[in-house]
Design a protein around this nucleic acid. Structure first.
Lengths: 112, 112
DNA sequence: CCATTATTCAACCAATTGGTTGATTTTCAA
DNA sequence: TTGAAAATCAACCAATTGGTTGAATAATGG
């Protein structure tokens, strides 16, 4: 369904949300810890996590009073299929991804 | 530069714009012809094409009084690299893409 | 029990988005 | 040369977005 692509792409269009995904690539995190490197309020991060969740890019599970955020990489699969159709891109390895992260995304806090 | 990803993803988040990209996969088109299957005004489509252009996803070249729109698939490459880092997706063939198009994107007009 | 921590909710705000209509500009063709 | 076609511009509008603050809820630990 088209809606999914709408939501996934819209979720990915924000640099804060992409940074969050990058952080979650390392490990699952609690909401407060996700928020820590950013300069905005906890409520703002909570909203961002809501957007990522409803796009299916992450899942959130509450254990005790802590809500854990977990990356759901499968949500990107359909999206990836869509995009690859336009370029017949050669498959990319994690190497290329990590180079990309180094160059183009800096660790949160400083958003440019 | 992070800005590029912002713009590319934001451009892709709209179903009208994704339909336009799909149409341009077939062949280059004039603005009027791009607009024809949609129910919205020409001016609206012109704006969408502007968004796609400034995201680098298409280019526009004016010949005479006709402005031709051309897909620029390389703009998706960087984006594809970013996404693949999250899933180590196996490479996808055009087959899969065409199946996907059949199932998930209908030809413009009916955006439902 | 009570203060504290984790998170969300609610109301609000400014900026952006996706659309409209009507006027303009540029180019073609009869 | 003049009228129609191709496309954009400009002003406007409603809805959405990304942020804020302050209050509310829920679970923890001393």
């Amino acid at each position: 369904m088209k809606r999914d692509l709408d939501h996934v792409f819209a979720a990915l269009a924000d640099p804060t949300r992409r940074s969050i995904l990058t952080m979650l690539l390392e490990d699952d995190m609690a909401v407060t810890d996700v928020a820590e490197p950013f300069e905005m309020s906890l409520a703002a991060i909570s909203k961002h996590l809501g957007v990522l969740t409803s796009a299916g890019l992450i899942s959130q599970e509450k254990r005790g009073r802590v809500k854990w955020c977990k990356l759901e990489p499968d949500a990107l699969k359909e999206t990836s299929v869509w995009m690859q159709g336009f370029g017949q891109f050669e498959p990319v390895h994690l190497d290329a991804f990590e180079r990309f992260l180094k160059n183009e995304l800096q660790i949160p806090g400083e958003i440019d």
